[in-house]
Design a protein around this nucleic acid. Structure first.
Lengths: 92, 92
DNA sequence: CAGCATCCCGAGCGATACTG
DNA sequence: CAGTATCGCTCGGGATGCTG
């Protein structure tokens, strides 16, 4: 899982999100990357996708139980890295 | 940090290791990847490199305090992934 | 609105060979 | 023993344009 996976997961940690919201909230992500990231996360069972047969179309994404477990064990690491970011020669 | 970074860090968690030991213990890593991984980890301050001016040359690697902190927050995630590996469509 | 298709480029990385 | 040098290919991922 890439950097984008972590960011999308973090965004969804706050609750259900629509495609457009994710696109806006996950800073710097392209449509292509958001799409493929979501497909991967869905395939891995971390997020659930719900499409509503409406016009205009509405699609919602939220974390599965597995996804919730994942961000819970991932959060300590992420915040630790965030805190230590200054001391570390950040890669990108 | 890549997959190799995690594996090398994990190997060093058990204590000081020499180049050859790491090469043998980190399964599947090439010399090039071990070299560049170690250089990155050293630059980021996670591992310390100690070269002894002997013949034949001997170089030892061990975790710094920062590196120890890192694997401590990383371990829960790694072991969680290891446990759930079956349920997840593993990528590579 | 929520995507998919295509082109393209550079970083990542494996294999192999060489060195102090 | 502990690396460095070079080649070549794969793949992430940005830009752009199209669709139901």
């Amino acid at each position: 899982m890439s950097k984008w996976g972590v960011l999308v997961l973090s965004a969804l940690a706050a609750g259900t999100k629509r495609w457009g919201e994710l696109r806006r909230e996950v800073d710097g992500i392209s449509e292509k990357m958001l799409a493929s990231t979501l497909r991967t996360l869905e395939a891995d069972g971390f997020v659930a996708r719900t499409a509503y047969p409406e016009v205009p179309p509405r699609v919602e994404y939220d974390l599965t139980d597995l996804g919730i477990e994942l961000i819970q064990v991932m959060m300590p690491l992420v915040s630790w890295i965030a805190q230590r970011a200054d001391e570390i020669v950040t890669d990108s």
